[in-house]
């Protein structure tokens, strides 16, 4: 921050984009690594009898650190939505969230003392690991998908894509009036179908085998390809409109697929976090109950 900005308290960047993973020169990666190393070294040095377990003083310490970290990490959901004043940066929070979350693998595992079984304690551990795995999935998606999405939308917005689809549909409706029954049915099929329907699997895989626009376009193309081109052939016009609709549909579907990829992991990460917290409560209560 330069002198001017410091004076007025204004936040202005030095002009470079720095992602959350690189934030502050990998500050949280360094801190998380330190924490993990510290945990591993102390685990090796401290001799707990008869063996490392969650119930020793050392186990309790790691467990307490772990549970506090989990609670703090889950607060990101609130931080993100609470637009309060003050010099905080959500990017820094995300950075810390990602790296400290990863360090929980070490802390949680050492806390178990590698004693796993079919009980509520291991349930909490497994849930935590799944939450972390879904987080890793999220980070990998965040690192790769935005570029593809930016290239795919090529300066058009989602609203513009949908608007141009509607505009083409209107033109198709008008252009299809002179067509014969068979061809008109094909166009009607394309107009009546929800081109994005079919559930989450369709959207994620971006495969729409029952798409009536593609079917109509291909069937009409079979006719127009073999017929001589005349200037005012309504079928030619419909064919070209269907071709345009198909292209826009392809882009929009890809866009929705990428958007879904960016969001779907959160639908695992967040509910599982709540399950984890519930399991943690059960775990802690049962530990103290059977003290």
């Amino acid at each position: 921050m330069d002198r001017q900005a410091a004076q007025s308290g204004r936040v202005q960047s030095d002009g470079t984009h720095e992602g959350f993973l690189r934030h502050a020169n990998f500050r949280w990666l360094k801190i998380a690594t330190m924490i993990s190393l510290l945990a591993i070294v102390s685990y090796l040095i401290i001799d707990v009898q008869p063996r490392h377990n969650g119930g020793s003083w050392y186990g309790y310490t790691l467990g307490s650190i772990g549970v506090l970290m989990i609670l703090w990490l889950s607060l990101l959901g609130i931080r993100k939505r609470r637009m309060s004043r003050g010099h905080w940066s959500l990017k820094a929070w995300t950075s810390a969230h990602a790296y400290l979350g990863l360090s929980l693998i070490v802390i949680g595992t050492l806390h178990t003392g590698f004693q796993l079984g079919w009980n509520v304690h291991t349930l909490a551990y497994v849930l935590m690991m799944i939450v972390i795995l879904s987080g890793i999935w999220g980070i990998s998606v965040y690192a790769t998908v935005p570029k593809i999405m930016s290239a795919n939308r090529d300066q058009t917005t989602e609203a513009q894509m949908l608007a141009s689809l509607r505009s083409i549909d209107r033109q198709l409706h008008d252009a299809a009036q002179p067509l014969d029954q068979n061809h008109a049915e094909l166009v009607r099929g394309s107009l009546d179908q929800d081109p994005f329907g079919g559930g989450i699997i369709r959207r994620m895989t971006n495969r729409y085998p029952a798409c009536k626009t593609i079917a109509a376009h291909e069937k009409i193309m079979l006719v127009t390809e073999s017929a001589p081109r005349t200037r005012d052939d309504p079928l030619e016009k419909v064919a070209s409109l269907l071709g345009r609709k198909r292209a826009i549909l392809a882009r929009t579907r890809k866009h929705l697929q990428l958007k879904a990829m960016l969001e779907i992991w959160l639908h695992f990460h967040v509910p599982l976090t709540f399950a984890l917290i519930a399991a943690l409560i059960a775990h802690i209560v049962s530990v103290f109950f059977y003290w």
Binding site: G9, R10, V11, Q12, S13, D14, G15, T16, H17, E18, G19, F20, R22, H23, K80, M83, R85, G86, H87, W88, S89, L90, K91, W93, T94, Y142, P146
Partner: peptide, 26 residues
């Protein structure tokens, strides 16, 4: 608003920045 532009503070990935042209076009 203490803390400055909300759009930048609230960006979770660091994609949003505010700059002056002299700073960016160097």
């Amino acid at each position: 608003i203490d803390g400055g532009p909300a759009c930048v503070r609230a960006c979770p990935t660091g994609a949003a920045i505010r700059v002056s042209p002299e700073k960016f076009l160097t």
